[in-house]
Every structure is written in structure tokens, then in C-alpha cells.
Design a protein around this nucleic acid. Sequence first.
DNA 1: GCCATTTGCAAAACCGTTTTACTAAACTAG
DNA 2: CTAGTTTAGTAAAACGGTTTTGCAAATGGC
Lengths: 364, 364
Amino acid sequence: MTKKKNNKRQGITIERVAAEAGVSKTTVSFVLNNNSSISEKTREKVLKVISELGYQPNTNARNLSAKTNQTISLVLPELGHVFEDQYFARALSGIYDEIEAEDYRLMLKKASYEFALNKEYINLFLRKEIGGMLYLGSTLEDKYLKDFADGDFPFVLVNSTLEGIELPRVIADYRGAGAIAARHLIELGHRRIAHISGSWSTFSARERQFGYLKALADAGISFDESLIVEGHFDREETRRATKNLMSLSEPPTAIFTSNDVMAFGVLDALKEMSISVPKDVSLIGGDNIEASGLTVPALTSVEQPIYEIARECVRLLIDLIEGNDEPKVRIWPSKLIIRESTAVPHENKIEKRRNISTELSTRK
Amino acid sequence: MTKKKNNKRQGITIERVAAEAGVSKTTVSFVLNNNSSISEKTREKVLKVISELGYQPNTNARNLSAKTNQTISLVLPELGHVFEDQYFARALSGIYDEIEAEDYRLMLKKASYEFALNKEYINLFLRKEIGGMLYLGSTLEDKYLKDFADGDFPFVLVNSTLEGIELPRVIADYRGAGAIAARHLIELGHRRIAHISGSWSTFSARERQFGYLKALADAGISFDESLIVEGHFDREETRRATKNLMSLSEPPTAIFTSNDVMAFGVLDALKEMSISVPKDVSLIGGDNIEASGLTVPALTSVEQPIYEIARECVRLLIDLIEGNDEPKVRIWPSKLIIRESTAVPHENKIEKRRNISTELSTRK
DNA sequence: GCCATTTGCAAAACCGTTTTACTAAACTAG
DNA sequence: CTAGTTTAGTAAAACGGTTTTGCAAATGGC
């Protein structure tokens, strides 16, 4: 386990390059780091030798000397669980792509119990193994995250919020999402707009609901409590909720759900009840997952572009690492993707449809 | 982008620990690295100071000085694609868990075109950023992988084989999988055993077929060409193939597929044809995916334990990194998970069932 | 009781960079 | 023409560890 054969071949060092090019180590280092005080002639000479020798600077030495670290650790909940979910796959893609583009490296860490207990998340910084950390998910206890609010390690939350702790983060504009969906329906002429929300214990569900209520209020529509129900992000539960909604003495003419899977549940119920979308009822989903463009009718959906949000998180983090920005909260606009599941309400069909562009976005 | 505020707080160094404990740097280093020539008294004194100060050795300095690196890079094809696939999720879990257990770190890399073009996979070693590399998937061109066969960088293939290149790897015993499945059916009394295989262009499909043929031959059963068909790892294609098989003048009494999804295709077809499993036809799948325990009847399947294989890959790689093993190929045994979809053939039902344990494994 | 060996630790060298301090030469201003 | 300022580069000192070498004290054998 620890016995080592010493078969490591000696690498090419800056010293070797310097000798070969007939300059000092300093000069080679200056060339590598684009220091301006090097003549074009010398620079070219050095670069030529570097390329001939296939020299690559030793990252450990560089980090040690320059006190930098270009590695970012991504902390995730249970891995097995994670990767079944499109949400995480998209987030990871965004994070990776931006890290790659900025010439940083990505280190993966699982937020296990031990990870938290041993304060491993802090030790990574103390050992200078990473320059910054991203957190994606919600497994670490609040009290551990508090360490980051206190300490001044570069740390960014990916699209999540923790009550009472002010941490740098980039989050989707869920409030705007609720508002933009409601506004679109109101503009079409709907007045009885139901909202089947995710679990009210979640930040995103509450925020969406807030936006929805605000849009109604702004339009002078007093809201009907019986039109707001909890669907728990579940397709089947939403199917049942929809049946109840449509059995009201005065059923809604439009439904807005927290995500697309729930919207599929609405479609299930309406199909069973032979209610047509969008002729009889308009429908808006959320998240704009891939399948949403393929349903009949294709689903209008409020997009939370997690890939872009993830990239922005990395940019914010790198700004923090490199010390040229203050910790901050960035809110990423939601976008309404208008497809076929929304239309003017039945009773208004005679009215002229207003001009509506096919993409609307919050916080423009 | 490059301008930095110098707000990095000075960390605690080995020098500080040494001073505080009243010993030399050497002694502290010896304590950290379990060098035996330190008295118990001194060791305890030093450990106490380390813990009080919360000292964590600087990994960059350590790697630079000791010429080691405890980071392993996992190279993957397209990330988005990866995380929707259970196979990759399982492999990643195994890789992560073993790396964590060995106190190494996991760096993620995407096998992009640029990654190959710039020989980035080699540069990671030259820059001393990683100690070893794992490759999971099949996107890199053979010619790039050749560099690893030539160079002596610690490199291990995770459950894959490339023709003509001898690279260290751990692979599932696909040949044994084919054999163990066929043998189980033969022992039950089957003689007409069909095999619906994956694409013949793949290593795993060919190997499984080879094992199947060998088992038949060993049992003195001459095989019928018409019972061996290609199902291309596809459920629908396998459904059609099954219908053809069952329409033969002398249909098989048992079917063995390359994986479980294909076995589901067989179930689809047999259900349509009102053929009962296992009463009329016995069925064995492959890979033992989660859903296989839930079908009716529950599916007998040959398991290729990718999680375990992945862990073994990491162990092999670390052995190579630490120089106490030779590059080698390890073959991981397949295991037959016997559930409800296999039974003695209809015409033999009067015979006594032989004793069969519920788990069989190749290469015992 | 004496010499040889082992034990326990420290001093110094080294790992491969960046950074700081300095200098000679070239240029500029007056 | 001279003093001051750039320019282009170098030598040496960090960075924070590990490893090698050295040495005094303790131990062991006879």
C-alpha cells in the first residue's frame, strides 16, 4: 500500500527550459504568465523551446508558490439518487462546461455524514486543495452551511436558498415564474385561474404561488381560495386534484402547475373527463422539460434554465475566488415558452386575440 | 479577472506546529507520515498541537515535495447523456466510494474532441495534477488510448476492452455470463435454448454468445442456428424477434437475452401470444437492473455487478499509482440471480426438479 | 566497562514554481 | 550632455512540505 517503486520518470522543469533557451527561470515564468516586460524576440525563443520540449508547468509548484488553486469542488447529495434526475444532469453539465471554459478543474464530493462531521468541506480549503466550492442539493445541515456564511471561503449555492442564512447564490426567479404564467393567462382573458402547486414546504412552490397571487391582484382579480391546491410535485396527485377542480360548481378556465410532470397529471385528468386543451381549459406547466414539446397539445411552460443558472453560479464563484467581486445573490429570469396548451377562454372566443409574442421573460 | 485582493488569511503551517510543540519540522512531518522513529511521548505532544491548531498540511506542498498525487481523473463521454443512464450512475457510485475509501480525490473530465486533440489527458500527468486516470465509455479514439499503452501513466479502463490494445482493465465476465445462463437452463432440462443477443458488433454480445455456445457444446447439445438472433439491445426489436422464434416449427423452450430490457421485450411478445412464463417458456435476462425484481414473473437474470467492478478498477489503479502491482486485466465473475422466470420445461414437468441453489457465480 | 548499534530527533537540502529586489542598458527630457 | 526614467532581464528568496544526512544519547553484547 505504501511501498513505492521509484520508476517516476523525471519531468521537464522550468529550469531545463531556461537552460535550453539561454535565459533565467524568471524569464520563462514571465513568458508563461504573460508578463509584459519581455521582448518579443526572447518570448518567441522561450515559447519555441517550451513547445519543443513539451514542457508543462507543475501545477503543485505553481499553486504553492502563487497561493492559488484552480480547482472547484462540487458537493452533491447521494450520487446514486442524484443521477436519475434530469435536473441534476443539466446542472452538472452547466457547471462542467463553465468550469472547463474558465480553465478550472472540477472535483466531485458527496455530502455524506462524515463529510460534514469531519468538516471536510472546510479542510479542503485549509489544505489548499480547492479554490472554491459549489453546493447543489439540500442534504447538508443548515448548521454546517453556516460555517460558510461565517468563514470567507468562496462558496456558492446552486439554485437553492436556505432560510436565515445569507449565502452567495444564483437562483431561478420562481416568483417571476408564477407571475408571468398568471399574466399570460390573464392577458388571454382568463379570470378563473387555478394553481396546483408543489409542496408548500418548498421555497420554489411558495415563491411561485406568491407571484401568481401578485399577478392576479395587479390585474384586479380577487382570488378564489378553492382554486389553489397542493399537488406535491406528483403526477398522480395532480390528476386527482384536477378532477376535484373541474367538479367545482364554477370550474377554472385555466390551470397553472409548478412543473411539467404535474401538468401531465392535469392532461391525464382532463383526457379522462373529455375536456379539451386548450379549447375548454388552458394549461401552463413549469421547468420546460424535454417531453413537454412532444405532448398533444404541446405544453406551454415556464422555463427555469438550470443549465444557464449553473454556468452563472460558476462565474460568480470564480469572481469570488479571484477576488474581484463581492458575494451576492443573482436571480435568473424565468421564461415563458408559449406552445399550444393556452388559448383565449371559451366564452371569449369571439373576442379578437391580442398580439402575444411567443417568448416572454421576467426581469427584462 | 486577474486582479486579486490579498485577503487570503495566512494558514497554519508545519513550522508553526513545530514551534508550538517545541520540536523540528522534521519531527512533525514524521508524525504526520507515521514514521516509526518517533517516541510515543513526542508523537502525542505533536498530535495534540496539531489538533488544537486545526492544522491541515498543504496538499500542494506535500505533492510537490513527495512527488505524489492522490487525485484520480475519471474521463467520461458526454455528461448529459451519461447521467440518464443507470449503468453510468452505478459505475460512478462505485468509483466514487472506493476513491473516497482510499482517501484519494475524484476529478471529472469530459472526453471532448479538444481534450483528445490537445493531449490534455497526458498533460494532466505532466502537470502533476493527477496520479492516475480511469476511462469509462467508448468515445476516445483508439489512437489516443494507444498513448497510454506506450507511456507508463497509471491508466485503467472501466469494464471495456479495445481490440488490439493491451490496457489494464477490469471487465465483467460476459463469456461466463453466457455460459452460466445456458448451463442453468440445461440443468433444468431444456434442450432448445434460444439466445437473443445484443448487437454483434459489441464485445459483450459476442462474448456472451461464445459462452452460450460453449455451454451447449459442453453439454453435448448441437446448436440450432435459427435459435440465435440479434436483438440489438432493443426492447421492441426483441419483441419482434421473439414472435419469430415462437413461430418456428419447433419453438424454443427457453430464451436467454443479453440484458433485462430485451427480456422485457420477450415478455411483451409472449404475453401477446398468451404463452406463459415460466410454464411454457423459461426466460433469463442480463444485467439484473432494478425493475427486474418487480416484473411478473420476477426475472431470472445474470448480473454484471458494475458497482463492484468500478470499485475494483479503482483498487487496480491505485495499486498501479503506488507502484506495488503490475498492469493487468482482471475479470469479474458474473452471477446468476434465480427468480421466477425459469423452470423445468413443460414436457419434463413430471421429472423431479434437481436441487439448485439460488445464486450461482462464474469463476468461483 | 567498552565498543557497536540503535533510537530519537534536528539541520539542511530539495521539490518546481512565482515573486521580489535589483541592475545594466537604453531611452527621454531639459 | 547629463540626470532621471524605462525596459528587459537576472539572482535570490519565498511557498510549505518531505527526505536525506548527521549526530548525540541510549541501549546492547560480551
